[in-house]
Amino acid sequence: MRKKITISFLAMMFSLLTIVGSATAQTVSYHPSLVHKNGAMAYEHMKYLAYEIGPRVAGSINERKAEEYIESQFKRIGFKTTVQDFTYSRRGTTTQSSNVIAYKPGKSSKQIIVGAHYDSVSVGRGVDDNASGVGILLEVAEVLKNIPTPYSIVFIAFGAEETGLRGSNHYAANMTQKEIENTIGMINMDSLAVGDNMYVYGSAGEAGFIRDQALEIVKKKKLNVGTNPGLNPEYPAGTTGDWSDHAPFKNLGIPYGYLEATNWEIGELDGYDQTVKHGGVWHTGNDSIEFIESEYPGRIQEHLSTFSTLLTDLLKFMNKTNTSK
C-alpha cells in the first residue's frame, strides 16, 4: 500500500507541511507582509522558539530543534548557511552544540558580525533570554536580504551561551588572523523583550563607534534607547560587562556593539535587575509571553519594533570613516 501513494496525495501532504506557521521546523514559512512592519516577524520567530520548541537547554533535543529551525529560516530567506558544530566538557560531561551562520555579501569585503544566542535555561520559556534576540536577528537578516550594505554581514545564532559563552568562544577561537583583521565590529543582542529601558552599549574610547553611530540613529529617529549611564564605576558609561557573546570578540580586539533591555538604575546598578516591578525576569519561570504581556502590555512589541529599526539602520548606514580598524 505504501508504494501506491498517488501523486495528488503527495501534493496534498506537501501543501499541508508548508502552510504558514507549520509545526515542522524545516518547512515553517511566514506571510511576506510581516517583514514590512518592524518587529512583527521577530515576534513570530520568538514565539516559535519559545512555544513550538520550548526551553532550549544547551545540548538538549530542543536546542537541536532550535538550530534546525534557525538554519531553515536563513535558507528560506536565501542566505548561504552553515552549521558549525562544537563540543565542550563541563563537570565531567561532554556536550554537543552548534552555531548557525549565514553570510550576506556587502559593498565591501570587510565584515561585521551580528549575533544572538538561541539556547536558554531550563525554567521559563526563554522568551526574553534569548528568543527575542534571535527574533531580531532573523527579521533584520530578512529585511536586509536585497539591500546593499556597506559591509558584508555574518549573522550568527550562537549555541550554549548559558553554559559559559561556549558558541561565541568557539567561533572566535577559530577565526584566522586575516578574518579578525577583516572584521570591523561585532553586534550582540541579548534579552531585548522585558527590561524597563532599552540600551545600546559599545567598546570604550574610539572603538565605541558602533554605539555612537547607533545613538545618532536613535536621536534622528527619536527612538526610546539610551546607554549605560555609568552609575556603577565598574561599568563605565556607554559600556557593559563581559557576560554575553560580545566578550570573546572584544578579547580579540574587535570593537563591539550590544543591544539589551534592562535597568541600570536599580539594584546593584549592574544591569542584572531588569525591572522595578519584578527585578530580573530572565532565568525565572516568568520568562514567558503570558507573564510579560500581562505585566507590561505592549512592551514586547515596542521593544522588538525599536530594536529592529535601530539594527536595520545601523547595518544599512554604518559609516566607514568613523571606524577604528
Results as ranks from 00 to 15, higher is better:
251 N>E: 15
230 G>C: 05
222 K>D: 15
241 G>M: 13
256 Y>F: 15
196 D>K: 00
219 K>R: 15
251 N>C: 07
290 E>F: 10
220 K>N: 13
308 S>I: 03
292 I>Y: 13
224 N>S: 14
204 A>E: 14
216 E>L: 10
229 P>T: 03
310 L>P: 04
224 N>T: 11
190 D>A: 01
315 L>M: 13
187 I>F: 08
301 Q>R: 11
304 L>Q: 04
237 A>V: 04
189 M>D: 05
274 Q>E: 14
251 N>F: 12
253 G>P: 03
317 F>D: 15
257 G>D: 08
197 N>T: 07
282 W>D: 14
297 P>S: 02
300 I>P: 10
233 P>L: 03
259 L>T: 01
191 S>W: 02
292 I>T: 15
279 G>A: 10
195 G>Q: 06
275 T>D: 10
287 D>E: 12
205 G>Q: 09
178 K>M: 09
206 E>C: 08
236 P>W: 03
300 I>Y: 14
216 E>H: 10
309 T>Q: 14
305 S>W: 07
280 G>D: 12
195 G>M: 04
307 F>G: 00
224 N>G: 08
179 E>T: 08
219 K>G: 06
300 I>D: 13
234 E>L: 13
232 N>R: 02
225 V>R: 01
258 Y>C: 02
210 I>E: 10
293 E>L: 09
291 F>K: 05
206 E>A: 15
295 E>T: 02
249 F>T: 02
179 E>P: 08
235 Y>S: 00
192 L>D: 02
217 I>K: 00
246 H>D: 08
295 E>N: 10
214 A>T: 12
258 Y>P: 03
306 T>W: 00
256 Y>V: 10
307 F>M: 01
240 T>K: 07
235 Y>D: 00
320 K>V: 11
285 G>T: 11
287 D>G: 12
188 N>R: 08
299 R>Q: 14
217 I>Y: 02
289 I>K: 14
298 G>H: 06
259 L>S: 01
308 S>E: 09
315 L>Q: 07
202 G>C: 04
193 A>T: 01
223 L>H: 02
215 L>I: 09
195 G>W: 05
242 D>L: 13
260 E>A: 08
217 I>L: 01
240 T>Y: 05
206 E>V: 05
280 G>V: 07
302 E>T: 14
260 E>F: 11
178 K>S: 11
179 E>R: 03
242 D>G: 10
209 F>K: 01
186 M>N: 14
179 E>C: 05
239 T>H: 06
311 L>P: 07
297 P>Q: 02
297 P>G: 02
221 K>D: 15
276 V>G: 09
229 P>F: 00
184 I>T: 11
271 G>S: 03
234 E>I: 12
217 I>T: 04
231 L>D: 11
204 A>M: 12
299 R>G: 06
319 N>P: 06
260 E>Y: 12
242 D>C: 07
316 K>P: 09
193 A>V: 04
279 G>Q: 12
204 A>S: 15
250 K>M: 03
229 P>A: 05
272 Y>D: 12
274 Q>A: 11
216 E>C: 04
250 K>F: 01
262 T>K: 00
239 T>L: 07
203 S>P: 11
297 P>W: 09
305 S>C: 11
217 I>P: 06
263 N>R: 01
317 F>V: 08
245 D>E: 13
216 E>P: 03
229 P>K: 00
180 I>V: 14
214 A>Y: 07
295 E>C: 01
186 M>Q: 14
298 G>K: 12
295 E>F: 01
